[in-house]
Amino acid sequence: MSCLQTIQDYALRSVGIGERLLPRSDFTLCEQVTLIGSGLIWNVYFGALALLCGFFLATGLALMRNSHLRILRKPSEWFVFVFRGSPLFIQFFLAYQLFVMLPRTGVEFHLLGAAFTAETGWLTRAWAGALIVLFLNTAAYSAEIFHGALRSVPSGDIEAADAYGMSGFSRFRRIIWPTMLRLAWPAYTNEAIFLFHATTLVFFSSFPAWQQKGDALYYASYFADKTFNPFIPYPIVAGYFIILTLLIITLFNAVNRRLNRHLPQDARRRLRIRPQVIR
């Protein structure tokens, strides 16, 4: 079987398109590279969607934490503490157990006199359940970063905004928020990188890989188990993730340049990749 044929069969295997059966024996390098690369689709899906949704929740949480009102501040502090203080691995297990305990037939509830039935079965599937956990988790980590940045917005900027007669939402949108993002961006880049790394945990916690549709590491460990040779599949995953990490850095660097474009060259903050926020 030629390599082109293998790519045709397995390149989209992780989303259920192509050959149904995984290769069983005599694995070629091409099969391993293709199938593991196909699994990477799930890592990108989890990482990108969780990051995108988490960004907005994190902004809200950071603002709540900065509030003077106890009733807003406390829930946000607890949310951040629970999700940052416990291992993501345990969070996955816990969420899965929680979703499994929901009634199989769906939850019925009454709203304005009409009865609704909410399906809950999909929550136990990785594409939804794990995404929710990752979303809440990254929101907590990002909220901590944004909160720190929000507190270091220069007070002179805010006074200047006041002097121009800005207040409330327009002051937030035009002055505070862009500055907060600019200050938080290097740390947020780290968070993004390690969130993508964390997506490899999904199929090793309780979430089942339905019909063997898994992520990159799922297929790599499949090959390692079958051949008892870790020296080929794991370096392939590593290579894919290094490429993914470089892509993220390029993308975030472009945003960083845009956020800093009004500053003189030597005052711009460079991105420094540090393992600060991994789980």
Partner: peptide, 20 residues
């Protein structure tokens, strides 16, 4: 190396690789 590759990949790799 740890900046670019998920730590769990190393965990799964080293346990078998060291043993072998």
């Amino acid at each position: 190396i740890v900046r670019g590759v998920p730590d769990i990949v190393f965990f799964l790799f080293f346990v078998i690789a060291l043993d072998q």
